[in-house]
Amino acid sequence: MSLTARHLEAEGIPTLIIGSARDIVDEIAVPRFAFTDLPLGNPVGPSGDAEQQRRILTAALRFAEAAVLPQSSVVIPVEWTGPQDWRETYMSLDDTEALAAAGAERRANQAAKKT
């Protein structure tokens, strides 16, 4: 998505990314980025919290309008009331045996598709 933003911007359409994968967006370097520190899947605000979604969206739009330089970014304050250990549970490495088995199965499936 960051590459798409760069392309649109280079071709004359201003862009704003609202997203939660800060490091990926920062590495690719985009024109305007509003960061929401939420679990992946809900970049505009927690699922079911329309009021917060609208507040985040409005703040991001106002930030975009004010930005005068590329790679402008803002950290938007968020309130997350779901599981507080979400940072640890995403792509967890706790069960290495299951991960190795899942990888092996996926490779076997892909090899089977090719033949």
Partner: peptide, 17 residues
């Protein structure tokens, strides 16, 4: 690859407002 264990995408407003 969103965080299926922590949240859901049942609410469009959370990702396509």
């Amino acid at each position: 690859s969103w965080h299926k264990g922590a949240t859901d995408t049942d609410d469009l407003g959370a990702y396509l407002p």
